[in-house]
């Protein structure tokens, strides 16, 4: 690296070859730099991008037979999405149930079930959906949007739903990253009441 005296140019001797070399080396250099730093940039982008769409998990919702025909529960998944789980038939298998997002695909308002009209209704822009979640009126009906559907599974009489995993790490306890039923239709038996009214751990052990 010390011997190259003629740094500026000896291009006069072989102008064609010289020019080619310059172009080729410049292109190669550009490609190398773009490839290396580009890949690093891509990794950085991937690091920042939050969604991990393939991470889904099955969560228990409710015992299948607790949900009578027409009953519906509002379920909240670990990542916060709210889902209406409804029983629409009594064939005794998973096809009886349907799980539809309760979030309107139009602008994200919460839809609710209107029994008398046999439809889901979104109060924001009068959007309506049929029992299968297909848009029938209002903005969703016009643009053919449906309520997203979630897979369900019945196992040993227990109803499970497949929902995205929570993306946020929880500092205090990982077990809170589970879904739960947050609202029950009347008539569905709710277990227990205030759970710790009778917490008497030490008294119980005294004889």
């Amino acid at each position: 690296m010390t011997a190259s005296k003629h740094e500026p140019d000896d291009s006069e001797t072989q102008p064609e070859r010289r020019k080619f070399l310059t172009t080729a080396s410049t292109v190669a250099m550009g490609a190398g730099l773009a490839g290396g730093y580009g890949a690093f940039g891509a990794i950085a982008g991937r690091f920042l991008y939050p969604a991990r769409p393939d991470d889904r998990l099955w969560q228990f919702v409710i015992e299948a037979d607790r949900l009578g025909l027409g009953d519906s529960v509002l379920y909240r998944g670990p990542s916060g999405e709210t889902i209406n789980v409804t029983r629409q038939a009594e064939a005794g298998d998973v096809s009886d149930f349907i799980a539809l997002s309760s979030t309107c695909p139009h602008l994200g308002c919460q839809v609710h079930w209107e029994g008398q009209n046999n439809r889901y209704f979104c109060p924001c822009h009068n959007g309506t959906f049929d029992p299968a979640g297909v848009g029938t009126g209002g903005p969703p009906g016009d643009s053919g949007m449906s309520l997203p559907r979630y897979p369900l599974r019945v196992d040993s009489g227990l109803l499970f739903i497949e929902v995205p995993e929570s993306q946020l790490a929880d500092a205090t306890s990982r077990e809170t990253a589970t879904g739960e039923v947050i609202e029950r239709a009347p008539g569905i038996h709710a277990p227990g009441h205030d759970p710790c009214l009778a917490c008497r751990p030490t008294d119980d052990l005294k004889t």
């Binding site: 410049t26 190669a28 250099m29 490609a31 190398g32 773009a34 490839g35 290396g36």
Partner: peptide, 12 residues
């Protein structure tokens, strides 16, 4: 330039 290209590829 060629060294840069090669190193860039290696980095990639």
């Amino acid at each position: 330039r060629f060294i840069i290209a090669a190193l860039g590829a290696l980095f990639l």
